[in-house]
Nucleic acid binder design. Structure first.
Lengths: 203, 203
DNA sequence: GTCTATACCGCGATAGAC
DNA sequence: GTCTATCGCGGTATAGAC
């Protein structure tokens, strides 16, 4: 509670530093994955010491958290509803992700590392999967009420499968970028949703 | 080509050592994941020095390769055909995996880490996905010729999706073991294969 | 041929100087 | 606010004991 910002340029400079570090961290994490990334390299690229970087974020794990948030915000901005995506737009999502392999790989690696309960990424992904699973199931239920989706399918299981396909296709694609994720996703959607309804969504 | 074994107990002892190390490595990797596992701990559990372990396998990465092979052999023994599994038996596979979360997590983590081209696991998984994708597609094609599977589906895309679901469900399950992977897998299979045909397979 | 002891460098975290 | 110094721990290359 000392100096609410604005009186001098110091805070702005700090914010700029944070932005620089964050951008660089995304870069390095993307290239090397979380575990293999070093504070040293990030610091070197930003042009400051390791402890300098640590000062701004408090540690490697905290830097990770910040990166995850960034991506979350970007996604939430692109598609509405807190990262939850309507099944109709999953193909669109897949196509978009195919344009940024680095970020896809980062998330794939972090999601795997986060399966350890003592991992820093664990709470984030636990919460994330919980949310998007619930949100996707809601979408499916709504779609079933409208008659756009087969009514005999368990919405919760459909949500699990859709998210699983999403994640799983990305892994395979990271190993072989010639694979057509969108086509595979479309195949699945076309059997559960009507042949094609990317139609005019309200949002 | 010196001493084809049998004349003295030295070779047998070495083989035993390798087995001990391998078993312990699987244990530790399973508990901690690859990156977080330490050569030191593995060596300590086996009861020898770190360099002693390194002597037998040449390094942490090489130990990893050996662990991957072990698992591959176990799977190939349980289900025939070089790790390729008939779609009819995927639910069975899922149920089996649900009994060994440690190994599932290890593979999930390694598959993610392996997406980096410079990773030691990269060649293994590149080859593995290639093989099982081809093998699964063949199964689907055969199933289509028999009329047991819808003929209008692209076998290659179906293979991609089936494998993706397999992998993706495991990730979600690692975050929430209350999820029913088998039910989700069944839901998908039941829409593409006939309502249910776990029937009498020859093998 | 099998293993131990030693040493080296890189990592992340922390305390304290400027 | 930023950096220097230092710590313990990680993997591994080498030499030499048995």
């Amino acid at each position: 509670m000392k100096r609410p910002a604005g009186s001098r340029g110091e805070y702005a400079k700090t914010a700029q530093r944070r932005q620089d570090i964050l951008r660089t961290a995304v870069e390095v994490f993307t290239e090397r994955g979380y575990e293999a990334s070093s504070f040293r390299e990030i610091a070197a690229r930003v042009g400051m010491s390791e402890t300098g970087v640590a000062f701004h974020f408090g540690g490697k794990a905290a830097l990770l958290a910040a990166v995850l948030e960034i991506r979350g915000e970007q996604d939430a901005a692109r598609w509405g509803g807190g990262g939850v995506i309507a099944p109709d737009r999953l193909t669109e999502l897949v196509a978009h992700n195919a344009g940024q392999p680095g970020m896809v790989q980062l998330f794939t690696k972090l999601a795997a590392e986060g399966t350890s309960k003592n991992s820093r990424a664990h709470p984030f992904f636990t919460d994330r999967y919980d949310k998007i699973r619930r949100g996707t199931a809601d979408h499916v239920r709504a779609s079933q009420r409208d008659g756009r989706t087969r009514a005999d399918l368990d919405p919760d299981l459909v949500a699990q499968v859709l998210i699983a396909v999403m994640d799983g296709l990305q892994v395979q694609w990271l190993y072989d970028e010639s694979l057509d994720m969108a086509a595979a996703m479309d195949l699945l959607l076309s059997t559960w949703l009507p042949p094609h309804t990317p139609g005019p969504v309200t949002a």
